[in-house]
Amino acid sequence: MGVQDVAEEQMTERREAVLDAVLALLVEKGEAALTMAAVAQRASCSKETLYKWFGDRDGLLSATVRWQASKVRAGSYDRHHFDAGALRESLEAFAGGWLKVIASETSIALNRVAIGQAETLGGIVLANGRFAIGERLKPLLVDARDAGLLAFDDAEETFRTFFGLVGRDAQIRLLLGDRLVLDEAVIAGDARRATEQFLALYGAAKTPGEAG
């Protein structure tokens, strides 16, 4: 690894430490305590560095949401050798990752803040959270359709169906304070269930019209 690569890796780690500090402050003290000064103190950096990296408080929040959303990914696959097993594995990986994120204290705190400040923060969370996650999975769905594994007309509508099968009422219950248990075993089971239901709806044995 070269000197430049090491420097870039260290920079990435420093930025991630800042974003972790934002999430920790949200969980511990709520949105009112989330000032650039408080984040700088928690992350052991200067306010000038924060402004340089993120622009302003909204930029910092946007980066934080993207950081959380980046943890939700479909499994890797070779689009030139794409089969039913790889599709199932990728969908389960996405579902499990998303459930793990929404069950975390940090995600719950972040989403509660966004709901409470919907006019200002709601758009940030939607653009960098839900919508960004959708754009990450839809290429997988399209590749699966091209490989003859899925049948659908509209990728966005198909993604929304899968998203609903995965989450059901879990997120709203968590946001409202329900002590819903989402441990690794439950998440793995829910990810498998959602994937099986989705494939039953959109598997290539059905025509696009039937799948819709």
Score class of each variant (00 low, 15 high):
residue 34 L to C: 01
residue 35 T to F: 02
residue 36 M to S: 05
residue 38 A to F: 05
residue 41 Q to F: 00
residue 42 R to M: 11
residue 42 R to F: 04
residue 43 A to T: 03
residue 45 C to S: 04
residue 45 C to V: 15
residue 45 C to M: 12
residue 45 C to Y: 03
residue 47 K to Y: 00
residue 48 E to N: 04
residue 49 T to C: 02
residue 50 L to D: 06
residue 51 Y to C: 00
residue 51 Y to H: 06
residue 51 Y to N: 00
residue 53 W to C: 00
residue 55 G to L: 11
residue 57 R to D: 01
residue 57 R to A: 09
residue 59 G to M: 08
residue 59 G to Y: 08
residue 60 L to Q: 05
residue 60 L to K: 03
residue 60 L to Y: 02
residue 62 S to V: 00
residue 62 S to R: 06
residue 63 A to H: 01
residue 65 V to W: 01
residue 65 V to S: 03
residue 65 V to A: 08
residue 66 R to F: 01
residue 68 Q to M: 14
residue 69 A to C: 03
residue 69 A to H: 01
residue 69 A to N: 05
residue 70 S to L: 01
residue 70 S to G: 03
residue 71 K to R: 15
residue 71 K to G: 06
residue 72 V to A: 10
residue 73 R to W: 00
residue 73 R to S: 05
residue 74 A to H: 12
residue 75 G to H: 13
residue 75 G to D: 12
residue 76 S to W: 10
residue 76 S to Y: 08
residue 76 S to L: 13
residue 77 Y to V: 13
residue 78 D to M: 06
residue 78 D to Q: 15
residue 79 R to M: 15
residue 80 H to L: 06
residue 80 H to I: 00
residue 81 H to V: 09
residue 82 F to C: 09
residue 83 D to H: 12
residue 84 A to G: 11
residue 84 A to D: 10
residue 85 G to E: 04
residue 87 L to V: 07
residue 88 R to M: 06
residue 90 S to K: 03
residue 90 S to Y: 02
residue 91 L to M: 14
residue 91 L to T: 12
residue 93 A to M: 03
residue 93 A to S: 14
residue 94 F to R: 10
residue 94 F to N: 04
residue 95 A to H: 11
residue 96 G to H: 01
residue 98 W to K: 09
residue 98 W to Y: 14
residue 100 K to P: 02
residue 101 V to E: 07
residue 101 V to K: 04
residue 104 S to D: 08
residue 104 S to L: 06
residue 106 T to M: 04
residue 108 I to F: 09
residue 108 I to C: 07
residue 108 I to N: 10
residue 109 A to H: 02
residue 110 L to V: 00
residue 111 N to E: 13
residue 111 N to G: 03
residue 112 R to C: 13
residue 112 R to A: 11
residue 113 V to P: 01
residue 113 V to E: 05
residue 114 A to S: 15
residue 114 A to T: 06
residue 114 A to K: 07
residue 115 I to A: 08
residue 116 G to K: 11
residue 117 Q to C: 02
residue 119 E to I: 11
residue 120 T to W: 10
residue 120 T to M: 07
residue 121 L to S: 11
residue 122 G to E: 12
residue 123 G to W: 15
residue 125 V to W: 14
residue 126 L to H: 08
residue 126 L to C: 01
residue 126 L to E: 06
residue 127 A to G: 04
residue 128 N to F: 13
residue 129 G to L: 07
residue 129 G to Q: 07
residue 130 R to S: 10
residue 130 R to D: 06
residue 130 R to G: 05
residue 132 A to Y: 13
residue 134 G to R: 09
residue 135 E to I: 02
residue 135 E to W: 06
residue 136 R to S: 12
residue 136 R to E: 15
residue 137 L to V: 15
residue 137 L to D: 09
residue 137 L to H: 09
residue 137 L to N: 10
residue 139 P to E: 07
residue 140 L to E: 04
residue 141 L to S: 02
residue 142 V to A: 08
residue 143 D to T: 10
residue 144 A to V: 09
residue 144 A to M: 05
residue 145 R to C: 08
